[in-house]
C-alpha cells in the first residue's frame, strides 16, 4: 500500500555522460598494464550539440584511459633499455621477439587450440550457468537445497580440480574444456540468479495484466530484466575462463599459449617466454574490450537509462 509519492520525475534527458563501468584488466598477465574503459553508450536521441559534447567526452575518456598504460610502457621501454639481466630483457627485445615469433613465425599456431578451448569452455559454462541460475530462481526449494553446495563449488579454486579432470577426461581437449566450463559456470549462475530475483514484482504484475504467456514473460521480462547482471556474470566468467585456459595448458599439455610460455621458461628462452606473456595479455585485453563493446551494444537501454537516472528497476 503505497500512498506516498515514490516516483522520481527526473524529466530531462541528460546530456549523457556514459555510465562509468570501469573494469580491471583482463585478469591475466601483469607484464603490460591494461586499463579498460567504458565504451560510450549509445544515446538514441542525439542532437548535433549533444553529439559534439559526446565526442568531447569520448575524447577525454580515451585520454584518461590511455595515459597510465602509455606512461608505464614508455617507462618500461627506457628503464629496461640497458638491462643485462637475463630475467628482465629490454622491452625492445621482447617486442622484437613478439614480431619474430608470433607475427612472422609460427608461434601463432599455438593460439588456435587455446582459443578453441576457451570458446567451447566459456560458452558451455555460461549456458550452464544461465540455465542453472534460471532454474534455481524458478524453484525456490531447489535453491534452498543446493545453496550450500553451490557456494562450496563457487569458492573451490578450479585449478585444484585439474588432476581430477585429467583422471575423469584423460589428457585430451575434453578435460581442458571441462575445466574452463566448470570455472565459467559459477559467476554466470550466481549473477543470473541474483539478477532474476532482483526484477521488480510490478513488472510481473504488468505482464500478467497484459496477458503474457509464460514464454513471453521469459523473453520480454525475465531475460531483459536480468540481462545487466547476467552480462556482469558473463564478464567474470570470461576472466575465469582465460585464467583456466592458461592453467590447464601448463599441466600435462602439449599445445596452447600456456604451454608455450611454460616451455620457453623451462628451456631458459626468457625473451620468448616474455613474448608469450605479452601476447597473452594483449589477447585478454582484446577479449575484454570485445565483451564490453558487445555489452554496450546489447544493453544500450540500460546504460542510457542509468545516465538519465529514472529507471528504478
Amino acid at each position: 500500500m503505497t500512498t506516498a509519492t515514490t516516483g522520481s520525475t527526473a524529466a530531462g534527458r541528460d546530456g549523457g555522460s556514459p555510465g562509468s563501468a570501469s573494469a580491471g584488466g583482463a585478469g591475466v598477465g601483469d607484464a603490460v598494464a591494461v586499463a579498460v574503459t567504458d565504451v560510450p553508450s549509445t544515446q538514441v536521441t542525439a542532437t548535433p550539440g549533444r553529439r559534439a559534447a559526446g565526442r568531447r567526452n569520448r575524447g577525454r575518456n580515451l585520454l584518461l584511459a590511455l595515459w597510465l598504460p602509455v606512461v608505464l610502457l614508455v617507462g618500461w621501454w627506457f628503464l629496461s633499455a640497458n638491462s643485462t639481466s637475463p630475467y628482465f630483457p629490454p622491452l625492445q627485445v621482447i617486442l622484437q621477439s613478439v614480431w619474430d615469433e608470433w607475427v612472422i613465425g609460427d608461434a601463432k599456431t599455438q593460439l588456435w587450440p587455446s582459443l578453441r578451448h576457451l570458446a567451447l569452455g566459456f560458452i558451455g559454462g555460461s549456458l550452464l550457468g544461465v540455465l542453472g541460475g534460471a532454474l534455481l530462481w524458478r524453484l525456490p526449494v531447489l535453491r534452498k537445497g543446493t545453496n550450500p553446495i553451490v557456494y562450496f563449488l563457487y569458492v573451490l579454486p578450479a585449478p585444484a580440480l585439474l588432476p581430477a579432470m585429467i583422471a575423469l577426461f584423460g589428457l585430451g581437449e575434453a578435460r581442458q574444456v571441462a575445466l574452463i566450463a566448470f570455472g565459467a559456470t559459477w559467476p554466470a549462475l550466481l549473477n543470473t540468479l541474483d539478477g532474476m530475483r532482483g526484477i521488480d514484482q510490478v513488472k510481473f504484475d504488468t505482464a500478467r495484466a497484459m496477458k503474457f504467456s509464460s514464454l513471453r514473460t521469459v523473453t520480454a521480462v525475465v531475460l531483459p530484466g536480468a540481462s545487466p547482471q547476467i552480462a556482469a556474470g558473463l564478464r567474470a566468467s570470461l576472466q575465469v575462463s582465460i585464467i583456466l585456459m592458461v592453467v590447464s595448458e601448463m599441466i600435462a599439455a602439449s599445445e596452447g599459449i600456456g604451454y608455450f610460455i611454460l616451455y620457453a621458461q623451462t628451456v631458459f628462452a626468457i625473451v620468448t617466454m616474455w613474448s608469450g606473456i605479452v601476447v597473452l595479455s594483449v589477447l585478454g585485453t582484446l577479449l575484454n574490450y570485445l565483451f564490453v563493446f558487445a555489452e554496450h551494444r546489447l544493453l544500450g537501454w540500460y546504460h542510457g537509462s542509468r545516465a538519465v537516472g529514472t529507471d528504478k528497476a
Partner: peptide, 27 residues
C-alpha cells in the same frame, strides 16, 4: 486494463515506447 502507480516500475525500460505499447497487442 490496469495502470499502475509508478510508470518507472510498470514500463519496460528495455523496450521503446512503441514496443511497450504494442506488448499487450502482441500477447
Amino acid at each position: 486494463g490496469v495502470v499502475f502507480q509508478d510508470y518507472g516500475r510498470s514500463l519496460f525500460p528495455w523496450f521503446t515506447n512503441g514496443s511497450n505499447i504494442a506488448l499487450p497487442l502482441k500477447a
